[in-house]
Amino acid sequence: MDPQLTPDQSLRIIQDMVLQAKKSFHRMSFYFLLWGVLLTLAMVAQLITATFSPGAEGVGWVIASVVGAIASGVHGAREGRREQVETLADRVLMWMWIGFMITLFGTMAGAGIAGYSTPVGSIMLLTGLPTFTTGQMLRFRPLIIGGVLFWVLGIISFHVDPVWVGILNIAGMVFGYIVPGYMLKRQEDGVRTA
């Protein structure tokens, strides 16, 4: 015979378990740190090549994209095997970021093939979307601020010299990806050991 539950106990069980499920987002900090570092290096490389080897500015972006895509894929597959639960939010976030990467790659490849310079301002505006949305879904304020920062810097970069566009982009990567990524990692490590 099952022990009798009171309505209050039932409600508490439901609340506790729904809260447990809510805490079960997959770890995302790795991607922010990886892409933050890679794209910062790509931007630095673009600034250097623009000075010393004009015409080869896009090489750093291509290398960063390929390395980032491979590392993300390998890490994602490994984590996927380890994760014990999948939420709808995990799936939404995964496909949003894959869609973002395809759009980003298409924009950079399209601009490169057509002979345009890398549209850094547009890329920053575009980057704001998944960053902001991820921050809202995780309820993680540093990423929300990071997303807004990308939008603000993206708009400003349409009105400044190319060197400043590079500096703004690096600032965006550091404060929109790397710093929130590090803070998220600390939070994830805390949740995992809790």
Binding site: S10, I13, D16, Q20, A21, K22, V85
Partner: peptide
């Protein structure tokens, strides 16, 4: 009830 409440919030769980 705990199992079902847990599964309500996720797609699947091990």
């Amino acid at each position: 009830l705990a199992v079902v409440s847990l599964l309500v919030g996720v797609e699947s769980a091990e």
